[in-house]
Amino acid sequence: MRGKARVNLNTVIVLVFLAICSIGVLYPIVYVVSAAFTPGSSIALDIVPFGSGVTLDHFRYLFKNTNYPIWFRNTFIIAISTSISTVVLASLGAYVFSRFRFTLKKSLMTALLILQIFPSFIGMVAIYVILLRVGGLNTLWGLVLVYVAGNIPYNTWLVKSYIDTIPRSLDEAAIIDGASHFRVYWQIVMPVARPILTFLAIASFTGPWMDFIFPKLVLRSADKQTLALGLFSFVTDKKNQFTVFAAGSLLVAIPFVIFFIATQKLLIESLGASTVKE
């Protein structure tokens, strides 16, 4: 009897604790959702969420009076190009690092590791001038080049350590059968490495959505803006349209949230796997 009562008390304490934490976690989310549907453009939100009624005006405003669809399209183009290029280049590099011995290999690997610790914007003045010289300013591809270059060092390591775990007997057999290195890479190693490549594709796709510094540096004209720049402009620029900002943010965040919840099992597995392998 006594034991059971204690277990129940423990469960209650844990439940209360989890409930309090949930409120803390959900607090800002509830307010941003409420702000997105609140009439008017006050920066002071209602104390009680949805306290002053519900309206879709801010969403209409986004699509009629702002370049929101263009921002969305630009960001999508940048994200998808960055994702594909990162996967291709990082996997090629990782395969070479994993399977070949060559001069300077160890130095190159160490260099990649040291380079990945820097936030790329430390060199932003130089990146600006280099893009100016190659005509990449105010273009989406210029921004993609910057992102891909920044992604390669760490992700080459990540994919390399995964490919290291694929038995070499697989590709050695294929080479004895006369397959070229490219075929081994494309038809044998890539399919086996699919889990890590999927993870990499997703991670490098989500990265550019909310980056702020480089779009601000590279993109100038109104038709080249990205979501982060556009949304940020609602809460600065002396506009203070927090409710419009909330509506725009909601539209970006919803797909992300659905995606993360749907893939949480995969996330736990891949994060767990990355620790065990070191």
Partner: peptide
């Protein structure tokens, strides 16, 4: 293949990561 496979990565890293860092 090893050279061709690494060349684009290394080229990008040199011009958009290493040169900016050395410049800084």
């Amino acid at each position: 293949f090893p050279v061709l496979g690494l060349a684009p990565s290394i080229g990008l890293i040199i011009f958009f990561v290493v040169v900016p860092l050395v410049f800084s």
